[in-house]
Design a protein around this nucleic acid. Structure first.
Length: 271
DNA sequence: CTAACTCCCTGATAGC
DNA sequence: TGCTATCAGGGAGTTA
């Protein structure tokens, strides 16, 4: 399940693999994803080149030489690969963009929560569909003071609050659990009850953990793969998500459902 | 405005 | 063995 570190890892690999590559062919095999893949075929991509790839939230944005961008979201199970165009198509490969170096960008998504669209850029330089989303957690705008201000009056549990993409983007179930454990804050705590010091701790640990996870190539629990098919290695560093006992005190880790997501926390260490 | 809920989808796994 | 039920969950949409 790609969160920010996984999207970042994919984006860096796509930047290397796609830069200066010219598009030779666009094929769509199964269009019905979150948004239809059908428009890719009529977007006039053939003949255009990629100039690079960048990330915003969990989206990878591959810029084209005509000022438009191929925007990708990976949903739960979305995988992009850049590999030999001649390799046989996988079961859930929904779109294939053939490049001029014999390779192809292949979009695979069994659960179809992802999408791939050609978009024009808005005045802020990003695809229009990304307008109005929250701050980047690794940007200087994401501070303890910011989180404190935003959390005033918010009754929802802090875990749901930091996973809210209108507040801060790219923090999903895995990194929310890890961040709150490192911050010693219970995921159940109403956001409005956080102190400024706790907000500072949450922000500091979120940045630290996201950077560390990027360094390890993200977290592969089941589906996530990078562009070359490799797995992220951060799964073995997880302290809370999907774990049994607290690595600090040994207490059995508690499991609760918040906002429809399973949440893990240590009832001894986190308050 | 926030909160709470539904829906989309397949594959892995558990239980009978 | 083979069926069915359950769960995994990001983001958009709807309702109160």
């Amino acid at each position: 399940m790609p969160e920010l570190p996984e999207a970042e890892s994919i984006t860096r690999a796509l930047d290397r693999a796609l830069k200066k590559r010219k598009i030779k062919k666009v094929e769509v095999f199964f269009p019905k994803l979150r948004t239809s893949l059908e428009p890719l075929k009529t977007a006039g991509l053939v003949g255009h080149s990629f100039v690079g790839c960048r990330r915003r939230a969990r989206y990878a944005v591959a810029d084209l030489d005509d000022g438009r961008a191929l925007t990708m979201h990976f949903g739960m199970s979305g995988v992009v690969r850049v590999e030999d165009a001649k390799l046989p198509r996988r079961k859930h490969e929904h779109a294939v963009i053939t490049l001029d170096d014999g390779k192809a960008l292949k979009f695979e998504d069994p659960r179809r929560f992802g999408f791939m669209e050609v978009q024009s850029l808005g005045p802020d330089g990003w695809p229009e569909c990304l307008a109005g989303i929250g701050v980047e957690p690794l940007s200087p705008k994401f501070t303890g003071e910011f989180l404190f201000e935003k959390s005033r009056g918010r009754k929802k549990p802090v875990k749901e609050f930091i996973m809210d993409n209108a507040v801060v983007t790219g923090i999903g179930n895995i990194y929310a659990a890890e961040t709150l454990f490192a911050s010693k804050v219970s995921p159940l705590r109403p956001a409005a009850k956080l102190t400024l010091d706790e907000c500072k701790l949450i922000v500091r640990h979120a940045k630290r953990i996201l950077k560390l996870a990027i360094k390890w190539g993200g977290t592969t629990v089941s589906d996530y793969r990078n562009v070359d098919g490799s797995e992220g290695k951060f799964a073995q560093k997880l302290k809370m998500y999907g774990q049994e006992n607290c690595p600090v005190c040994g207490t059995k880790i508690a499991k609760v459902v918040l906002g429809g997501r399973t949440s893990w926390y240590c009832p001894t260490c986190q308050h």
